[in-house]
Amino acid sequence: MGRFGFVLRRILGAIPLLIGITLFTFILLQLVPGDPALTLAGPRATEERVEAIREELGLDRSLPAQYVAYVGNLLQGNLGQSIRSKEPVTSIIRERTPVTVWLLGAALILSVSIAVPLGAHAARHRGGWIDHAIRVVSTFFLTMPPFWVGLMLLLVFALGAGWFPVGGFGETTAERLRAIALPAFTLALWIFPIQLQSFRSSMIDVDGSDYLQAGRSIGLEGLTLFRRYILRNATAAMVTLLAVQMGFMLFGAVIVETTFNLNGLGDAMVRAVSGRDFAVVQGITIVFAVAVIAINLLADVIVAALDPRVEIQ
């Protein structure tokens, strides 16, 4: 079983997870209080009308039959329609995805550029006051509620200094970058502490490893040693962490988009929650879950490419 086998195994392993997601959202649907047919029909609908809708939605069938129909719909890319706007959920998702992707991308770049240098620095001065100071600062950021950080940044840099817009997204790339700056920074401040701690400890692990000793003993030093032995291994650990953190980042995106009125997926989800618009909540939950699984899969592939040892594990 080589590296290819490892990746194949991971792909097969994702299938039960996907089934799990459909089960989770299906059960959620059953738990929602109230009769969806009644809700859709409206308060003044006749008994026959409600019955017709129930039949149309397949609610008169048994639960397993409903589940099969539900999965069938999902596989055809049909996520239902919004109770509020009557828009198909898929088009809401398509419309909102770019903002969230911009936000996550920018936040990821920012957080890694904070976490990696600081983490490397802390690892190099392990146990010293620099290491200690970096730990205290990162813990400090971990305790800050991200929406509050966002509001404080808004207060100082948007309302106060006027450097950034107070909310919304833009049309041109420059506008978007300006609009995304504070939200991305807010999200980055929330997720970088975990990246930092993890990068620090993987640097320390690599530093104490046998192969690094071996590398040093054959006379490797400086940049070669750092690039070929330390960075490559620490990067593999980092890629895994970023993938694991993805679900948490999406939660962060929900918070930050709401704070900054960015019309991304997270914002749509929160609006749907307060509007009791179940189809939208469900659709976005599925998109988020599938995205997380896909990204973890991708991370496994990247790690397999970086690190030939994965086949042994």
């Binding site: 997870l17 989770f24 959620l28 948490f248 939660f251 929900v254 989800m269 939950t285 879950a289």
Partner: peptide
């Protein structure tokens, strides 16, 4: 493993939404 693989905090929103 399964719970760990899901974006649990997104599920948290969905759960609280349903549970009230």
């Amino acid at each position: 493993d399964a719970v760990q693989s899901f974006p649990v905090y997104v599920f948290l929103i969905a759960l609280v939404f349903v549970l009230g």
